[in-house]
């Protein structure tokens, strides 16, 4: 996976912010997942429309105080988890 990869949220997933965290329900499997506030913000951005991971890094860097290299590493790891669970799809 690379920062130039572009993703969108799966049409089979519904999401709601609950108590400051994003809860996702995969309608296909019935499984649900939780995202922390940063992950929830990334989900919100993806829900607005397909994005490159690099664009998401830019947004996170602008909104949260963290070094760029850490943001990129964390975002790549999160995107892999979301893709492995079919919660996001290549766009």
């Amino acid at each position: 996976m690379q920062l130039s990869d572009r993703f969108a949220v799966s049409a089979d997933v519904v999401a709601r912010e609950v108590g400051g965290e994003m809860v996702l329900l995969d309608l296909s499997s019935g499984q649900y997942f939780g995202l922390d506030p940063v992950g929830g913000r990334i989900w919100e951005l993806l829900a607005e429309g397909p994005r490159e991971l690099a664009e998401l890094c830019d947004s996170v860097e602008a909104e949260f105080e963290a070094p760029r290299d850490r943001i990129e590493a964390d975002l790549l790891a999160l995107a892999k988890q979301l893709k492995d669970q079919d919660l996001i799809v290549a766009a």
């Binding site: 049409a11 519904v14 709601r16 609950v18 108590g19 965290e21 809860v23 329900l25 649900y32």
Partner: peptide, 29 residues
């Protein structure tokens, strides 16, 4: 926690059609 509460409420609800995604979205909300 609020997230745990949602996860324990989900299996205690009655669902007619697990493939009717529009209905499931409303139900989840």
């Amino acid at each position: 926690s609020l997230q745990e509460a949602l996860s324990v409420l989900l299996p205690n609800a009655f669902i007619l059609d697990v493939e009717d995604k529009a209905s499931l979205r409303g139900h989840f909300g």
